[in-house]
Nucleic acid binder design. Structure first.
Lengths: 335, 335
DNA sequence: TTGTAAGCGTTATCAA
DNA sequence: TTGATAACGCTTACAA
């Protein structure tokens, strides 16, 4: 392994000069700079990031904790976070949280927190206290929920407003019996995405004087394509008479489209469907899926801005809570 | 920041004893072990991985270089690699390669190679010489292609055999005018997935005495949903008379399904469609997509096994080349 | 069973 | 403009 000392020896300078050239830190004479650069190239030197990290107390790595990449929303998110972080000179390591036993999440994150200069986390199971404790160890930005307190920054989606708009859109299109497809009994908590989205659905129905559908038809943890498909099967097989479906996520909605097709239910003719997240695939399903676009780019930019402010110490104190602008995107499934 | 020395002071022992307890390395008396563990907990100590990495010369991180996660195949792959690597005690950092200017790929990978104990890479642009050079710096496993030589291990898909089976399947189902949807003019190279898959298509047609479709209808770099959709539009709009489509990837195939739907072409009644990769979404599209299942789990297990053998030095010498078992999965799009 | 000493490769600080 | 020195937190090798 070639070290800075080797390069220094070859170039006939000190390691500090090599370091200064490589980081263009101070003024270095042109002749010396050239010699160093040449020595770097001939020797094939590569920087040892562990040594730098140890010395500087920063790793240049941001952690991104998501349930899994096996989900179009999270892979979309990861893709953009990686790309944007790369532009800012950071690398991204992905942490899978869904594999962990409940509660282990925070422990794992804490034990690894030193490896990251900051952590972006989709807060599915983590509670306010845990989040605050974690945030004392490492700059922390939470996605998708609200009001954790402490120095935790939040970038939230317009969960309530989004599903309210989605539901109102179906009502406006003439739907009167609108099902909500999500997991049963989300915890009544303003930090819970599933709860908030359900509230939006309920609010829109109430505003229109309509009765909500009592059924939740996805198994907990089943916010997936297959979960959505199975839910649609049960919806039809149980003889529930609906003319609209609001699904808690696009994955579920796409599964619902498939499940309705299995039962010969036509979308949008018999039933109109709306999702939430506006994943890429929503544009290409048959029929294409109407959805709530939660401002992905805005969210990613904001998350990284907030995180870097904490990392560099530009901003301290109580956590900010920012809500991304959302947009209803109408496609074939509700046209 | 709490260090091992702090813990040692609190427990009244030496740092080595703390280190030994934390790594349960040697026999440590129960009383001392208890004191150390208590000191760790009360102090809130967390291991500094940079220091350990510097000292041990290993980071515990595996790099995964993929074009982007904005693609169901690569996100599926990343998901499984992260999960499996986690079980083996490694973390995974994702490198985006598609953002790089051509040729920079190798440079970037090299400059970062010290950060990883090993690298798994989808070799889209990297050439044999670059790969070999890289492999001298870091254990390297390449995905999806073949025959790079040197100490580079390979886990390949059955590219030729897969598309041959897919094409033969369409022929067996009665198709006679089968289009190939991929990028134009893939480099004639046994290391090029796109070339190999095209070969399989050609072989199946030749075997059946059929004429190949001359057209390639996806723009380079457009192996995406929208690329597939646009290709299908052009196929129909140009009046090409086909009764079957073999797409180079599932993303393209799913786009083709959408594009055909746009033009009122029925699948499978008018045209049968087969893809390659068997991504999750293939089961849930309408119609569901027939595909070549390239043995994802086998590939991921094998890749990590090979990589760890190189990392630990268990195996040295010339690179192995292993081909994953494939399977044709027939679904509605060709039923 | 526990402890001491040295060193991994880099950079901050201060001196020349 | 350049260099010497110490230190970051940990583990290997050896000593007690």
């Amino acid at each position: 392994m070639v070290t800075m000392a080797d390069v220094a020896r070859i170039a006939g300078v000190s390691t500090m000069t090599v370091s200064n050239v490589l980081n263009d830190r101070k003024a270095v004479s042109d002749s010396v700079r050239e010699r160093v650069i040449e020595a770097v190239e001939t020797s094939g030197y590569v920087m040892n990031h562990s040594a730098r990290a140890l010395r500087k107390g920063a790793t240049g790595v941001i952690g991104l904790a998501v349930p899994g990449l096996d989900n179009p929303y999270f892979s979309l998110l990861a893709d953009r976070v990686i790309a944007r972080a790369g532009q800012l000179g950071y690398r991204v390591a992905i942490e899978h949280t869904s594999a962990e036993v409940e509660g282990e999440l925070a422990a794992v994150a804490t034990s690894r927190s030193l490896d990251y200069d900051g952590l972006i986390m989709t807060a599915v199971e983590i509670g306010p206290e845990e989040a605050q404790r974690l945030a004392r160890t490492i700059p922390l930005v939470l996605i998708g929920e609200r009001s954790v307190g402490g120095s935790v920054d939040h970038v939230a989606m317009a969960n309530v407003e989004g599903t309210r708009a989605a539901t109102a859109h179906l009502i406006e299109r003439g739907c009167r019996r609108i099902a909500w497809v999500s997991v049963p009994d989300p915890v009544d908590d303003t930090n819970n995405v599933l709860y908030l989205r359900h509230q939006g659905y309920l609010q829109a129905l109430e505003q229109a004087g309509l009765e909500p559908d009592p059924g939740f038809r996805v198994h907990p943890g089943g916010l997936t394509l297959s979960g959505g498909r199975d839910a649609a099967h049960r919806l039809v097989d149980d003889g529930v008479d609906v003319d609209g479906v609001v699904a808690v996520t696009d994955s579920v909605a796409l599964g619902v489209l498939r499940g309705l097709a299995d039962r010969g239910v036509r979308v949008p003719d018999d039933v109109r469907v709306v999702g939430f997240d506006d994943v890429n695939e929503a544009q290409f399903s048959v029929p294409s899926l109407s959805s709530i676009h939660p401002g992905h780019d805005w969210m990613v930019d904001t998350m990284l801005t907030l995180l870097l402010e904490r990392i560099t110490g530009t901003r301290t104190g109580t956590g900010l809570e920012l809500v991304a602008p959302y947009e209803l995107v109408v496609r074939e499934s509700s046209a």
